[in-house]
Design a protein around this nucleic acid. Structure first.
Lengths: 167, 167
DNA sequence: TATTGTTATACTCTATAACTATA
DNA sequence: TATAGTTATAGAGTATAACAATA
């Protein structure tokens, strides 16, 4: 990194100082934290549902019946996180388990009618939240955003494939 | 929200099921978590620096001298988070404080030469990380991404202005 | 009275390790 | 031996409340 050979490039990002507020990882993190907390407040205050619990309901809303392992894979959560969130949902009778006779180590999980009722209430709220959030964004910009987020995800998955090796 | 008046809209997102993997808050959260953890591994393993500590160094790299309160405002961290991270950096002699004679409640914080040396090593690594991450993204898409992230942030700040009222 | 900063404490989410019960 | 899931425990990161020192 000696100055003679390195400092000639006149690109604006070349400097010894990194601007935090323009640094993509920082921006993503701040935004995602704000978004998650705001959304969690929406369903948290009303239903006492945590983020992992919401993700489990959302997954079961899509797939009806799933094992804990499959839920973890789909919603990108550690098996211990899933285990505890499922236990909490079970205790509140929002989720129930049905044994798998073919493999008694696992069980099929599904929402109870009560769970489905809460799910049916949360979904429009979540969708409204996302819509409010994006309401000023041009549709083509939103499409670009989603495409780029996908590309970034793919890039990360390609390099560090160690999110949760045993789940 | 009665079905007669609401369900006629044939937009594709209208359904009782919400697709988690296409839901913006979820996507942002997963991506940001992966990005943060990957980056934190880069400077964490090498220098034993946490995310809040890195943010403080980054802020002091931009502004040379700042109070804890100002650092918190700039890097969007709670004052308790800043206080603890500064204490850790002080103990390792990466940051030092200079009293403000005009107001003895606060102190000006700055990196020591040792802190500056670590900062100077981290910055290129961080920049390289961000560049690797974005290397497949078209420049105009990246520009759109940054613009849209800014719009989303502005939208969130406009609604829920309760991030850290007393900092 | 209000503000800067610290500390005690707690909560959420995540993760490792040790365990059980099955396979 | 390996896998699904649970539990104990610990680690980040964040937050509230109580406090000391100063304004």
């Amino acid at each position: 990194m000696d100055s003679l050979s390195e400092k000639r490039n006149p690109v604006e990002t070349e400097s010894d100082v990194l601007e935090l507020e323009g640094f993509l990882p920082y921006r993503l993190n701040v935004l995602a934290t704000l978004v998650s907390q705001s959304l969690a407040r929406v369903y948290g205050e009303r239903f006492g549902i945590s983020i992992p619990e919401w993700r489990i309901l959302a997954t079961l809303g899509q797939f009806s019946e799933m094992t804990a392992r499959e839920i973890g894979l789909h919603s990108r959560m550690h098996k211990t996180t899933v285990s505890r969130a499922v236990a909490a949902l079970e205790k509140r009778h929002l989720v129930a388990r049905r044994p798998n006779r073919q493999d008694m180590r696992e069980a099929f999980l599904a929402m109870t009618p009560r769970g489905q009722a809460i799910y049916a209430e949360i979904v429009p709220m979540a969708r409204q939240f996302a819509q409010d959030l994006a309401q000023d964004i041009r549709p083509d910009d939103l499409a670009t955003l989603n495409r780029v987020l996908g590309q970034l995800m793919a890039r990360l998955k390609a390099s560090g494939e160690d999110h949760d090796p045993d789940a």
